[in-house]
């Protein structure tokens, strides 16, 4: 194969990771400066697109959630919608609105827990106690390190009791997971360093990802939500804290300041990079094949 055909192949390659390529391509790229440069440039380009600072739409999200929470029956046209989003005729708008009202009413009047501050619907397969423990871990990681001990003191006993009570009904998988969540929550109260915390948190995230992969169709949606929620409210903020950490300074006389561990700047940076890499791999794994199924995208 010549450079031109290799480069055409690379430009439409799904992955820019050599592991995903046929051996012949990898071999050529290794020995060819021009093709290796193309791969580097492509990676850099994609990194730049991924890392650009786009808005997250947090304000619009809060408005949307508030509207939902008030059960202020939303129409299919958000309030501030531009004219181009409005249906062409008023009767269409009315029809869309009543269809939506009926749908929402049907959803809300299903048997099961009534509407809380958010729209609560059918019971899921995951036992409540696992949900509670996960939420507790999230609260723990989001609390300031100084407040965690108090939070632990206020909640630990009650949670342990709940687990004990629910135990006979838990599957072995859920029981082990519940134990892990308690253990993680307790250890988080003792820690005040993002690097240490992330080891614990990574472990929980990995288990959540495994649970998604192992789940049957009934559990899958709920477990995906667990995972996304955990990544969003726990792993991502932690990554952010890790990226903001400054390496320890070594002052005259060899005294280290600005960092609670006995690490030199090089060790610190290595650890920081390792953690970033493993969290990133986890994210990729979950967004990649693990969460997809052969049914995906079949046109209805």
């Amino acid at each position: 194969m010549n450079c031109q055909s290799i480069q055409t192949w690379l430009l439409q390659a799904e992955s820019l990771r050599p592991k995903a390529w046929p051996a012949a391509i990898g071999k050529h790229v290794d020995g060819c400066a021009a093709c290796a440069k193309l791969v580097r440039d492509l990676r850099e380009l994609e990194d730049q697109w991924r890392e650009q600072s786009l808005p997250s739409g947090a304000e619009a999200k809060s408005r949307f959630l508030q509207k939902q929470a008030k059960l202020d029956v939303p129409t299919s046209i958000p309030m501030r919608m531009r004219p181009y989003l409005k249906p062409a005729t008023p009767w269409l708008a009315a029809a869309a609105m009543s269809l939506f009202a009926i749908t929402l009413f049907a959803w809300l009047s299903r048997p099961g827990p009534g509407p809380g501050p958010d729209i609560k619907v059918a019971a899921t397969q995951t036992p409540d106690v696992v949900d509670r423990l996960l939420e507790w871990n999230l609260e723990m990681t989001n609390a300031k390190p100084g407040d965690r001990k108090k939070l632990l003191a206020d909640t630990e006993d009650e949670l342990r009791k709940e687990v004990k009570k629910a135990e006979p009904k838990l599957t072995p998988e859920d029981r082990l997971f519940a134990e892990k969540l308690i253990e993680t929550g307790v250890s988080l109260a003792e820690l005040d360093n993002p690097l240490e915390e992330s080891e614990r948190v990574k472990n929980v995230a990995e288990t959540l990802a495994e649970r998604v992969e192992k789940s049957d169709a009934k559990e899958s949606t709920h477990r995906q939500l667990h995972f996304y929620k955990f990544m969003q409210r726990c792993v991502h903020p932690l990554e952010e804290r890790i990226s903001k950490m400054k390496p320890p300074e070594v002052k005259k006389g060899g005294k280290k300041v600005g960092f609670p561990f006995k690490m030199n700047p090089k060790q610190f940076q290595e650890r920081q990079n390792d953690l970033r890499k493993s969290l990133d791999a986890l994210r990729k794994k979950s967004w990649g094949k693990g969460f997809n199924s052969p049914h995906f995208g079949k046109r209805r």
Binding site: Q68, A69, K120, V121, T124, L225, K229
Partner: peptide, 8 residues
């Protein structure tokens, strides 16, 4: 099955 909460 819709999830517990659409908010999630």
């Amino acid at each position: 099955e819709p999830p517990d909460s659409f908010g999630e």
